[in-house]
Simulated assay, not measured.
Amino acid sequence: MKFLAISGSARRASTNTALLRALQAMAGSAHTVLVYDRIAELPVFSPDLELDPPPAVSVLAKAIADADGLIVASPEYIRSIPGGLKNAIDWLVSREEVVGKPIVLAHASHRGDDMLCQLRSVLATLSERFNEELFLRIPLMKLSPEEIAKQVSGRRHQEDMRAFLGAFARYCGSA
């Protein structure tokens, strides 16, 4: 299975991006995980540009079209979805690439439930194949890159990530 893992953070040292990179690293030959960490490169959504979207939007849309499923990981900003991720979703809402695409969430914090609730609602509207039951949460907030690497390389987290990817692959193949 080929998964596109979208980081909702514009931060270079994002813990959510680090979680997605850990998924990418442990996927091995069983799955391909491509991490999209360029939310900050997307221009502000404008319906006037939907018919001829900017190149950055076309790159994201193609990556989504090429994927069997999407994994979204995002921080919470002021108890809400970060503006960059919401902007990316706005660019996708009228496009065909995301229709019927399996989508799941991963989260790199012990908190953020208000944002996750909002994001679940938005993603369930975006695709009828959003699966809120499949969810990976590994608390990494405020850890250094070295501490994150140590955390995600632990046996328990490796097993959790492997199980998550396996369950998502089965879900993607069940259509």
Rank of each mutant, 00 (worst) to 15 (best):
E128G: 15
L123G: 12
H157M: 02
Y171E: 10
F135E: 03
F130G: 13
M161E: 01
A149C: 06
A149M: 02
E146L: 07
S121T: 12
R162D: 06
M141W: 07
C172T: 13
F168S: 12
M161A: 08
Q158V: 07
A124E: 08
Y171T: 07
A163S: 14
Q118L: 13
R156V: 01
E159K: 11
V152G: 03
F135C: 04
R155H: 05
S127L: 02
E133D: 12
R129T: 11
L134H: 08
I148R: 06
K150W: 01
G173I: 02
E146C: 05
I148S: 01
T125K: 14
A149V: 07
C172Q: 10
S144Q: 01
S144Y: 00
L165I: 09
L140M: 07
A169L: 05
Y171K: 08
A169F: 06
L116M: 12
S127P: 05
A149D: 08
I138S: 04
P145K: 05
F164V: 06
F130P: 13
K142E: 07
C172F: 04
L143K: 12
E147N: 01
A167L: 09
I148G: 06
F168L: 08
M141R: 09
I148L: 05
L134K: 12
S153F: 00
E132Q: 14
K150V: 02
Q118K: 11
R162T: 06
E133T: 11
Q158M: 05
C117K: 15
R155D: 01
Q118F: 14
R120K: 15
I138E: 03
G154L: 00
M141C: 00
L126G: 13
P145R: 05
S153P: 00
L140V: 06
C117Y: 15
V122T: 14
L165H: 11
F135D: 04
E133Q: 13
C117E: 15
A124Y: 12
D160F: 09
R129A: 10
C117N: 15
Y171M: 09
